[in-house]
Amino acid sequence: MKFILVMAIIFASLSSFAEEKVTIFVTMTPAGSFQAVSKKPKGNLIKENGLFTADKISVSIESFKTGIDLRDEHFWKHMQSSKNPKATLTGLKAQGGKGVAQLEVNGVKKPVTISYVEKGPEVLAKFKLKASDFSLPKAEYLGVGVDNDVNVEVSFPYKTR
């Protein structure tokens, strides 16, 4: 019985969870674009006295989908998913619409500056990256490449303390 009660406490906190999503906006060369989307980021985002913090938010590289199966496989391979299966954001601190964190991709850690807005029970955060900063090689397939600069959007629910 106690077990159930304890579970119920967890449910109360889980039930407010909205949808988690990471979207990477990729520009192709010579032209065009696609989005790589994952709906499986994991972690905890805490809001306390207006300050957002997260020890770790991670996402599996192979959870990203681009709309074309072969392109998914190439995306995962390019991101070296077999060696570094996750991208991880750690040490997030954000307040007043701006924040900083450490982002690790392909085994390389770099600081990122984030802007965000609160939307109900979740936060919508945006930041820009250069693929080359994470030792990712230039991506090109049969003459069609992708821009080094990518935009990332993350929507993630938070818990209030």
Binding site: I9, I10, N44, L45, D55, K159, R161
Partner: peptide, 14 residues
Amino acid sequence: KHKKLLNSIKRGDS
């Protein structure tokens, strides 16, 4: 151990 885990999850601890 189970209670400790549940409480950590609820608090959002690592």
